[in-house]
């Protein structure tokens, strides 16, 4: 019984030390924080361009596949993309790779996708595990024209969870500290015409 008490005491002490250490960890200098804010926004803009390339019917198949691989690198494992339509109130969620495959195969003759008003709705905040988490909102304009000339278009507001974590790696004998930005789920918050 004493051993159990001792065990819990040690665990509690370790947790306390961790909490104190976290509390004492200095905040990022404003310019460093601004740099990671900007980096995360840039990753979202990069995704916007990748989505427009993948969806574009003019993009050669091999190029689209290569771009899908690059776009996949932006996402955290298991991230999902919400897809909505004016024709249905339901929002469907797909794994990111599945979403890209579906986007490539959309049954339109021409597809044009653009993102605008990309901004933080929830600033990057440091979490107890040291990661920074924030939410960036975007508006997506989708235009699809079918072979018979029918045009579908909508504008969807989407919220993207962003995770930013400082990591280290060894390159050329040097220890490099870098910020790993990963995008999480992209959730649909509204769809309009």
């Amino acid at each position: 019984m004493n051993k159990i008490k001792q065990y819990f005491a040690v665990v509690t002490l370790l947790l306390l030390i961790q909490q104190v250490a976290f509390a004492q960890e200095p905040e990022l200098a404003p310019d460093r924080k601004a740099a990671i804010d900007s980096l995360a926004l840039e990753k979202v803009r990069d995704l916007s361009k990748y989505i427009s390339i993948i969806g574009d019917k003019e993009t050669p198949f091999s190029e689209a596949n290569r771009v899908i691989e690059r776009a996949m690198e932006l996402f955290a494992d298991g991230a999902q993309m919400g897809v909505s339509s004016l024709n249905s109130s339901e929002v469907k969620y797909y794994g990111i790779r599945t979403y890209f495959r579906r986007l490539m195969a959309l049954n339109y003759d021409k597809v044009k996708i653009s993102w605008f008003n990309i901004q933080y709705i929830s600033d990057l905040e440091r979490q107890p595990d040291g990661r920074y988490v924030g939410v960036i909102t975007i508006y997506q304009r989708f235009e699809g024209i079918s072979e018979d000339g029918m045009k579908y278009q909508d504008t969807t507001k989407k919220d993207i969870t962003v995770f930013v974590e400082r990591k280290q790696t060894q390159i050329g004998g040097r220890l490099i500290g870098f910020w790993d930005v990963l995008l999480g789920d992209i959730r649909v918050s509204e769809t309009t015409q």
Binding site: I36, I176, D180
Partner: peptide, 19 residues
């Protein structure tokens, strides 16, 4: 060949984008 991109330099610390 690795490409490193500096995003910030402050207080003697250099921050990079993911290599």
């Amino acid at each position: 060949a690795p490409v490193l991109i500096i995003i910030a330099q402050s207080g003697g610390i250099t921050d990079y984008d993911e290599p």
